[in-house]
Design a binder for these strands. Sequence first.
DNA 1: CTGTTAGCGCGTTCAA
DNA 2: TTGAACGCGCTAACAG
Lengths: 348, 348
Amino acid sequence: MAGTKKSTLALVAERAGVSIASVSRVLNGLSASADVTERVQQAASDLGYVPDATARSLKVGRTEQIALAVADAANPVYMSMMNEVSRVVADGGYRLVLSSTGADPANELDLLSGLDRGFVDGLILSPLRVTDELVEHLRRSRIPIVVLGSLPEGVPLDNVRADSVIGMRLALKHLAKQGRRRIAFLNGPVDTVPGATRLRGYLAAVEEYGTAQQADLQVEADDFTFAAGLPAAEALLDQSSPDAIVCANDLLAVAALKAIARRGLRVPQDIAVVGMDDTEIAQLVHPTLTSVDLGAAKRARTAAKLLLRRLGDPDAEVRQVVIEPKLRVRESSAKDAAREPSRTEASR
Amino acid sequence: MAGTKKSTLALVAERAGVSIASVSRVLNGLSASADVTERVQQAASDLGYVPDATARSLKVGRTEQIALAVADAANPVYMSMMNEVSRVVADGGYRLVLSSTGADPANELDLLSGLDRGFVDGLILSPLRVTDELVEHLRRSRIPIVVLGSLPEGVPLDNVRADSVIGMRLALKHLAKQGRRRIAFLNGPVDTVPGATRLRGYLAAVEEYGTAQQADLQVEADDFTFAAGLPAAEALLDQSSPDAIVCANDLLAVAALKAIARRGLRVPQDIAVVGMDDTEIAQLVHPTLTSVDLGAAKRARTAAKLLLRRLGDPDAEVRQVVIEPKLRVRESSAKDAAREPSRTEASR
DNA sequence: CTGTTAGCGCGTTCAA
DNA sequence: TTGAACGCGCTAACAG
């Protein structure tokens, strides 16, 4: 049960018959005579010496830790992001500490305050809502922060985001080209960053492609989850009869698929469905889900790299990266099956 | 851009006109005169003082950090586990550092060695494969470790696991009661802990319920993923004609659903499908997936609590917790729809 | 090339 | 109750 005793630099020095400084040098690969090097390495391995991370941190002023804070850790899109960040950060020699702020913005503020305790060298933050207060805290931060997600104009912070307005346009264009005219929007909470920007994108695209502009074609789920999407999708189908539904999220899209199926309607013949984020789920469901790939993995990777860059060079110019979305067409909006006059099943 | 200057205990002391020790006392809630207390608190808040985590750690010998290491971070079941651990650990006043060991056992060993650097007070480890060497390292560890997953008999380590043998029995019993006789098993790599124990469970249950014992009813995917499950499921259907498929995983089960659909067979009428882990995916797919709930969330929560307990009391007796599985019956094995003789049956 | 020394920021003895 | 001093384990500057 009891493991090896913790050995210190001084113990190694004593055993090797040299000074503590020499040990430090040898272990850090600095100049030392062959003789001393040999003896130190021998002593160190005899004692199973490993340098203490905390003491080292206190001395050098770096913890070699990076924090990742996401608002909604339950969303599957965050899993791929977390994995990517984890990889990049580990390759850069940093450990990743996870700080799940919930949906409550207060937690994010708490986190930012706590950051001044210096347990981490940098932060990647993906806030669900961006308040002025939050922005103020971000600017005041003592450590570098990269924001993952949209940020107000003119905030000089490293930041990487998806262009969900273009993403929405891709979806609407794809659907409009099939002759879909009543394209509904199943959104999540509109007072969140993704909810707000995706709504903007939808409205702009509706305008651009001249599809129906009806209030009853828009509905807002209480959350970006399947469970919240279900009643919202039902409500949407109750109050209108769309020929396509664009969803702010793959989970919401799957909820739409289910609500549609419950009414005995067919996807994509009667209603096409398009999701967003292109999570693995899109390929698992039946019919497979067309989805707008917002480049979650790439965004995460880029954010991590930006942070590493700034940690290496604090005076580097601020960079704001926008990732281009791509449309992944699958069965739920397949063209050849679409727009068939009535209940024809022949061409299938 | 430049944030507040980092303020130290000495600065606060100077501003309050007291000694550094008094500041430390006031801030740690120890005895102090009302006057000094007042002045220190004032000075501290003026300077926005926050104690340095690293220095404190070096002094008190605790980092207030816990590491979580999972082998396959891409598996959705780990997401809920991570979230639970995150919650419990945060409530206990600890930060969570994530250490994604890949599928390679060498990484786990590296991690364990690195742990001696003392950047973390405890570890929750969920190994995919358990070698003698790993067990040896675990026992030698200087910090408390809780193992999440099966462990060889007699290893005196805190540990929490699912009883997947009983889980398998639940699945087989459910299917056998419907009259299913050719119950296949779509497994992941059998040289992993989950792969091995689930195979044992399957074999035992096949024996117990007297269903067909044919080698061609067992197939092993290269990985516990949808992508790996697809060809494995195809191979299974090529080489045999099961009337039910139990899968080691929800992802594999979804792959089975897809392979079955491709052949124009119906679920559950022609083939029933049962998954494992009861991830959110089970409720998203069509038909909804019957799944064995192995209590992932509860296991994670329990593991975290065990670790907190041991951190508080290093001499507590070793505890090994086994979580009881529950069967969640859904459409993919619905009873009333089963066993309807269909014309496809003959041509199989 | 090597040893001695001074902190990094904090908690905690020991005297006063 | 308060203050001065020490040391946690390590790195870096300075002497020798």
